[in-house]
Design a protein around this nucleic acid. Structure first.
Lengths: 206, 206, 206, 206
DNA sequence: CATGAATGAGAATTCATTCAT
DNA sequence: TATGAATGAATTCTCATTCAT
């Protein structure tokens, strides 16, 4: 008796969901979670507030999804990079570089995802995401230490410091550095910093 | 007919101002800007909200001053450290260690000052503060590079990365690291990380 | 060009209508009108909200009908009881007992129908229903007074009081009484109370 | 340093608090809790919604106080009545009469206080109030049974039935009876009903 | 005809800021 | 001058009702 949801309708729903996520992402990218009230999101998505609640049970849920999605995607990329057959320093460098490049495209977004505090539920999700993030870098560091490519150190602390280092250099609401030197140069410097930081022997060929 | 303020009155005004700043600082240290509503600040300062507005034109102004003050104080300490006659690596290590130690005693405060977002005006002030912070570290890095103690690098970027690294490792409200290893060890690791990061030759005697 | 509704179609419409009423009744029985939103009713009836509106012009109308139906049914039962050839006290006792027993099986339903407030339109319908209810008891009381089995009294008031008495004792969502004594005992006490209340000579054989 | 609250100011605050309670009471009396939204209360009290929250931490708290106050007052009166030196039937009659008279002046209010469901917190308060209410009547019934003035019966059930009986007869949103017979007569009939209901011997001298 | 996504008017609550006392 | 009560706009979330498909 129940009508089967037509592909067309299915598509429209999918689109709406994405419109909401996209609107939210865009608002966050412009001004952080602070700017992303439900009303603002609904407006940006050209919908009513009620419609947003059809797709997401609460504001928190919306942002948890936004956050999780973005971080999962980012982590997948990083994991792929550090899984490549190469030396630990090279893989670390590649991962940092990859992240840094993308973060430079949307500094506020990175900021919000990595730093900006929100309500406890989103915060909890972020904690998980940070661990996820950190664990990627921890892995390379651990491998490098094990193979003797890096000196003895706490992989935990180093991973956190790495994340912090490029976060700071990249993800500030108003990036203090991005304007002064070229993006390429900035990324290069950050990569160098991180490599030295874990004690990789000076890289060659760059 | 302009009354000249008596020294006594002048003093009282100064005291009130400081009471407010102090109350605000304490609230922020306990729970971040979130907890520091004007009513809460006024209560903690044992004043009326109206009185707060006599000393600060708006909430933003209050927090801008709070932030600026704290950072100035911190920077003064750091500057003193890096002005000491010692090798660049030692001075950098001492500065990072000094900052890290203090941040660990009041993580929420550091968090709020360095990370937690507030309204745009405060944010703008924070940018300035971060630059201030960075400039201290930039100075050591530059000197180290100039003296050949550190390899060639962008002092700007390295300084930002240093600030980010220890911010990340220290100032999380849910510090993922603080609980796992001793504070002393954590500080040590951060210092090591930063020293390696700028390319200081491995420190001895630790 | 008006199509005559085929019996088959007529039947289907009837069925849908009943499905809606039935779903609504079930929801109300579980958690009161509070739980019976249109969406919930439509879901429970396995229909769309739009479909519900095809059969009932508004939520109020649906519940007015629900209420009226239920009360009519209940009244029919009670009327049958008081129409039996027996003494007025016995018929009153039987009616009260019958009502009380059924109410105890679905306290939320009774509660919602008798007590829980809704919007003014439903409220108006409930007034009518209560009168209907009352009139059944009024009838026995009047007969008992006429026959000298009960003392002189306002049948109207007594009937209202009877309805109120067992309503109070039975239909609370948090029934303060139901938990303390057995249902049988509770019903017995209520019956006794009502019988004494109209001045029936103490019943024997219980 | 803190100004002592002047009596004048103290009075104004007291007045505002009462204005709110009074506005709320009046709205409830007109249309139940349903009509008493915070906006409506604030409007009726000629205040802003924010002002209401200065006096009551939440809507629930406001209504809990309203309810508790009214019931305490009512119970105090009833307790005084049943404490008088008189026969149990007389004291019961006096209590019922006293309550009935007052309830007739504000049927919606009684309705809301005794019957209308609200959120869990207010409901919890009401449960306490109902017990309080019931216990007053339970007391007379118990005493009457103990002294042999009333026949054996569950004081609990009888008390609930009594409350229900006059609630029904009086406190319906649209009182079904009040319009038909004189208030005096109505009260008299209710009193008679309740007295008979507990098995008091027919009263004389009325 | 049925569907159920979308609407949008409210509801409770918070808080920076103002201003009568 | 200091007070703190009052303001009112803003926020999140709900749900009866409608209407494009």
């Amino acid at each position: 008796m129940a009508y089967r949801r037509s592909p067309r309708v299915q598509q429209r729903l999918e689109d709406n969901r994405n419109r909401i996520l996209s609107a939210a992402r865009s608002l966050v990218a412009q001004g952080g979670f602070r700017e992303a009230s439900i009303v603002a999101v609904a407006d940006a998505a050209d919908m009513s507030t009620g419609a947003v609640y059809r797709y997401f049970p609460s504001k928190s849920d919306l942002f948890v999804e936004l956050l999780t999605d973005a971080v999962q995607r980012e982590c997948a990329i990083l994991r792929a990079i550090i899984a490549r057959p190469a030396t630990a320093p090279d893989r670390l460098a590649a991962a940092v570089e990859s992240f840094a490049r993308r973060a430079l495209s949307g500094p506020w977004l990175a900021y919000a995802f990595i730093i900006e505090p929100v309500d406890p539920e989103v915060e909890a999700a972020r904690l998980v995401c940070r661990r996820e993030f950190g664990s990627v870098f921890k892995e390379v560091v651990r491998q490098g230490v094990a193979s003797g490519e890096f000196p003895e150190q706490s992989a935990n602390v180093s991973a956190a410091c790495i994340v912090g280092a490029f976060t700071e250099a990249l993800a500030r609401p108003v990036t203090p550095l991005a304007g002064r030197i070229s993006k390429t140069r900035l990324v290069g410097e950050i990569v160098d910093f991180c490599c030295r930081a874990v004690g990789a022997s000076p890289r060659t060929g760059r």
